[in-house]
Design a protein around this nucleic acid. Sequence first.
DNA 1: ATAATTGCAAAGTCTTTGCAGTTTG
DNA 2: CAAACTGCAAAGACTTTGCAATTAT
Lengths: 143, 143
Amino acid sequence: MTDQRLEDVLGRLRDEGVRVTLPRRAIVSALLGGGHGHVTAENVTAEVQGEHPEVHASTVYRTLDTLERLGVVYHVHLAHGAAVYHLAEDAHLHLVCASCGVVIEVPEDVFHTLADGLHQGFRFTPEVRHFALSGHCDRCLPR
Amino acid sequence: MTDQRLEDVLGRLRDEGVRVTLPRRAIVSALLGGGHGHVTAENVTAEVQGEHPEVHASTVYRTLDTLERLGVVYHVHLAHGAAVYHLAEDAHLHLVCASCGVVIEVPEDVFHTLADGLHQGFRFTPEVRHFALSGHCDRCLPR
DNA sequence: ATAATTGCAAAGTCTTTGCAGTTTG
DNA sequence: CAAACTGCAAAGACTTTGCAATTAT
């Protein structure tokens, strides 16, 4: 019943000299448990506070930063609102419809051609993970 | 000496039933005058207030919205900070280095292949103008 | 005249920060 | 025990909004 993935992550924290505290344990649990990606810091806070109401939002932000530094999670800006967090192992790219907000997840390799072109033409290496690509899904296509 | 482009824009406002006021005149002037793109609402406000200190930032935001609705300007989110505004006629895409912040402007057609691929594969039409593409320029490339 | 627009102040959203007290290793 | 971490409250950056007074048409 002890979640192995939880222990793995906590082990990684300890290996890095990062202390394992009750808030961190709860936050990592929430991330692993919620599972299905796209959680905001606020979502995580709410979930954690269900069990541990004393854990403050600022701690959640700080912990998410720490986890990102360690490569456990990363965050994406989907649109104008709050950033969403993912487990790093679930890495993928995001297409967001500017009208209806639907999020389409796509594998990274879809961008290879573009990345090659940008690198050759402009000496620029895109990092398409960190910001979603805005646009329109077919049903919201203007006109 | 009367700026023809200014009068053109103001004419467009009137045609749309939008009133031409002193703040709007000053804001459009600032956009046309500053010229070289990438201005934030705050930049515009500062410039306008040089001549007309009574014009309030909220008016600038409202006017920029109006101008965007009319297709005179559009705004882009370069990174985490404030949005930047462009004259619509200067439309182009933006690559932003996450390390040094340099902004590289590229023609839209660089994205055609990607756009076709996304449309065929995911029924999604990217609108690459509204958010910059984050990444790293060669001199900031990690590792 | 009258509907649009403005200035102002206040609020709103998301996130960060300073600090004193608490906890981990 | 020392260094790391936390809760709290406050601030910070950017933008939006409600409203009464003003202004363009």
